[in-house]
């Protein structure tokens, strides 16, 4: 009944998901391999942005505004003369951090809400109607509304996106909990006298993770896209912080004269999101074969 009965010789949940045979199967899946590679490249770029960026991403240079790509500024400069390459490299860092934070918070809250809803049947109806209410809004609109209310900042954007994506995650976790709770190994655990926490974590959630992990990769991609939308309309992280969305937003007035300002962050978003979606598709095919789309 207490958390104490969870400790003992438990290996972490991740330890039981990442087994070598599974990794082999994952990397044999082409979609996963390509997506994973693309995503790893983006992550490495974000991690080493300081080393890779040729200029300070915030350094104005009024003598070279809206500069075309050349040897000094490989991808050109924006209306303040800031180096686009450096801004995109640093922007990937902020965008990935937002995506990661949203994924982590969504995972925690979605799992918690979904698990309680699926396990404590008396609360199910109430919790799920609230989630349905949140899901009645398109997630982007909801995030814009929350972001606008809280004011533009990185953390408010994270909060807004977490609220927008948690209901979907909760629903997925609840669905798997409802299936797993009826299995005989859960009944066996009850017959042995296991407490609710042990049953919920060790037996039910440990076997509900596959669809959640798949969903989280898509939420990662969606958050990066949504951050761009929020920044574009000015409710994301404040400029001059470089994020993919901010760079595009600042370049929109100069699309005709200086298309490089918007094109490169656009390509960066596309690469990141495509990589994550491929990764998610591959994960789903391997972890959750029932959902596989025919003909792939």
């Amino acid at each position: 009944m207490t958390t104490a009965d969870l400790t003992d010789d438990d290996r972490g949940m991740l330890g039981r998901i990442v087994d070598p045979a599974l990794l082999r199967r994952l990397f044999r899946n082409r979609s996963f391999a390509i997506g994973f590679t693309m995503f790893v490249v983006v992550v490495l770029i974000a991690f080493f942005a300081d080393l890779l960026a040729p200029h300070d991403p915030l350094q104005n240079n009024y003598r070279y505004r809206l500069g075309e790509p050349n040897q000094v500024h490989l991808l050109g400069t924006d209306n303040f003369g800031r180096d686009i390459l450096s801004r995109v490299l640093h922007g990937s860092r902020v965008s990935l951090v937002i995506g990661l934070l949203v994924v982590m918070l969504t995972a925690v809250f979605g799992t918690l809400i979904g698990a309680v809803s699926g396990y404590v049947r008396q609360l199910d109806n109430v919790i799920m109607r609230v989630m349905d209410g949140l899901m009645a809004f398109p997630p982007i609109l909801l995030a814009i509304a929350i972001g606008a209310t809280l004011g533009p900042s990185l953390f408010n954007a994270v909060i807004a996106l977490t609220v927008a994506y948690t209901p979907r995650t909760a629903r997925i976790v609840r669905a798997s909990v409802l299936v797993v709770r009826e299995t005989e190994f859960v009944e066996a655990a009850r017959a042995l006298g296991a407490g609710h926490l042990r049953i919920l974590f060790r037996h039910i959630l440990a076997n509900s993770l596959a669809p959640l992990i798949v969903q989280l990769t898509f939420i990662f991609a969606l958050s990066i896209l949504a951050e761009a939308v929020l920044s574009y309309i000015g409710v994301g992280p404040r400029p001059p912080t470089p994020t993919f969305g901010n760079i595009i937003a600042e370049g929109r007035n100069y699309i005709a004269e200086a298309p490089w300002i918007t094109i490169w962050p656009g390509i960066a978003i596309m690469t990141t999101v495509l990589g994550l979606n491929l990764l998610g598709d591959g994960l789903r095919d391997v972890l959750d074969p029932r959902l596989r789309v025919e003909g792939r």
Binding site: D5, E184, A188, G193
Partner: peptide, 27 residues
């Protein structure tokens, strides 16, 4: 105690047999 019909569904697929057998003792 109880023995179940379905030998697939009655064992937690994420636990080793050693863990499954030790769990009642831990509980």
């Amino acid at each position: 105690q109880i023995i179940f019909q379905d030998p697939v569904g009655s064992l937690n697929p994420r636990m080793t047999v050693g863990e499954i057998l030790a769990e009642p003792l831990v509980i």
